[in-house]
């Protein structure tokens, strides 16, 4: 490939923790890869698996879902349901031979600006290793 691969990653971030964590990373001037497009959701469990799939099938190279640590959910137990749903979705992808590694779930609290920067950089690196989403440049879907 002539030009360097610039991944596009959709980050679904929980309003109460991970989004604030991302904010803190910015306020502290930490390096966060520009490949991540953050989308604020009120809870990680607000994510219908369809939204994650939509992003992947429309060409996103990766989807990062970030929510509160277990036990810290603003709504009590939303992140536990989110974890089950995304686990299920990963199984669906794996059963169809699709790259489940393009989907990641992480717990990041509002005070963990550093952790957000680390998680984002790490995911960005992993997606760069995976390469572009094979759905790109395929008119059939």
């Amino acid at each position: 490939m002539g030009e360097m691969f610039q991944p596009r990653i959709v980050g679904f971030l929980c309003n109460w923790c991970s989004y604030a964590g991302a904010d803190l990373a910015g306020a502290n001037r930490l390096n966060v890869p520009s490949s991540i497009t953050p989308i604020k959701v009120m809870c990680s469990s607000r994510l219908d698996p369809t939204l994650v799939l939509t992003a992947l099938l429309r060409g996103a190279d990766g989807v990062l879902v970030a929510g509160c640590h277990p036990g810290d959910c603003h709504y009590g137990e939303g992140n536990y349901y989110a974890r089950r749903r995304l686990y299920l979705l990963k199984e669906v992808l794996a059963a169809l031979g699709l790259e489940e590694d393009r989907l990641s779930l992480e717990w990041i609290s509002a005070s963990e600006g550093k952790r957000f920067a680390d998680v984002a950089s790490d995911f960005d690196r992993r997606i760069r290793e995976l390469g572009p989403n094979p759905i790109r440049k395929r008119g059939q879907t």
Binding site: P49, L88, V92, K137, T141
Partner: peptide, 27 residues
């Protein structure tokens, strides 16, 4: 935006999404 990414979109669009999405809901 889709055209830029994919070069072409099949119509009806979203048939793959429909099936995998449905699997996510009821499999």
């Amino acid at each position: 935006g889709q055209l830029e990414v994919k070069g072409g979109i099949r119509a009806p669009a979203g048939t793959v999404l429909f099936h995998i999405g449905r699997m996510g809901h009821m499999a």
